[in-house]
Simulated assay, not measured.
Amino acid sequence: MKFYALLLSAFLLSATTTTAQQFVMKYGDTSRKGLPYSKDPHVVSFKGRYLMYFSIPPFANNPASGWNIGIAESKDLVQWNKVGEIRPAAGAAYEQKGLCAPGAIVRNDTVHLFYQTYGNGKNDAICHAWSADGLTFTRNSSNPIFHPTGSWTSGRAIDAEVAFFNNKYFLYFATRDTAMKIQMIGVATAPAHTNFNRDQWKQAAGKPILYPQLDWEGECIEGASIIERGNRLFMFYAGAYNNAPQQIGLAVSEDGINWQRLSQQPFLPNGKPGEWNSSESGHPHIFDDKDGRTYLFYQGNNDKGRTWLLTQEEVFWDGKSFKRKG
Rank of each mutant, 00 (worst) to 15 (best):
F11M: 08
A10D: 03
T18E: 01
S38P: 01
M25C: 15
P41V: 09
D40G: 11
T18R: 04
K39D: 12
G34L: 14
P41C: 12
L12K: 01
F11S: 07
A20H: 06
F11K: 05
H42T: 15
H42L: 06
F23Y: 05
K39N: 12
K26L: 09
Q21C: 01
K39V: 12
G34V: 15
T18L: 03
T18D: 04
Y27K: 07
R32K: 14
Q21Y: 07
S31N: 13
P36L: 10
A10G: 12
D40T: 08
S38R: 00
S38E: 01
G28D: 05
P36E: 02
G34H: 07
H42S: 10
S14F: 01
S38F: 09
A15I: 03
Q21A: 14
Q21W: 01
L13G: 05
M25R: 11
T18Q: 01
Y37G: 00
T30W: 01
G28R: 09
Y27A: 15
D40W: 07
L35Q: 01
F11D: 03
P36W: 04
T30N: 04
V24S: 08
H42C: 11
A15L: 05
V24D: 06
K39A: 11
D29S: 15
T16V: 14
Y27I: 13
S31T: 15
L13K: 02
P41Y: 11
P41R: 13
L35E: 01
Q22R: 09
Q21D: 13
T30S: 05
G34M: 13
A10N: 04
L13E: 00
A20W: 00
Q22K: 04
S31F: 11
A15E: 12
D40K: 10
A15D: 09
T30Y: 01
F23N: 06
K26C: 11
S38T: 10
S31H: 10
V24P: 02
T18P: 00
A20R: 02
V24Q: 12
F11I: 14
A10M: 08
M25G: 02
F11A: 09
G28A: 07
K33P: 00
K33A: 03
A15P: 03
H42P: 02
A20G: 07
G34P: 10
A15R: 08
T18H: 00
F11Q: 03
Y27N: 15
H42N: 06
Q21L: 05
L12F: 00
Y27W: 08
F23A: 10
Q22N: 09
F11L: 11
L35A: 05
G34C: 07
T17P: 03
V24L: 08
Q22C: 03
K33S: 06
A15M: 05
A15K: 01
P41T: 14
D40S: 03
V24A: 00
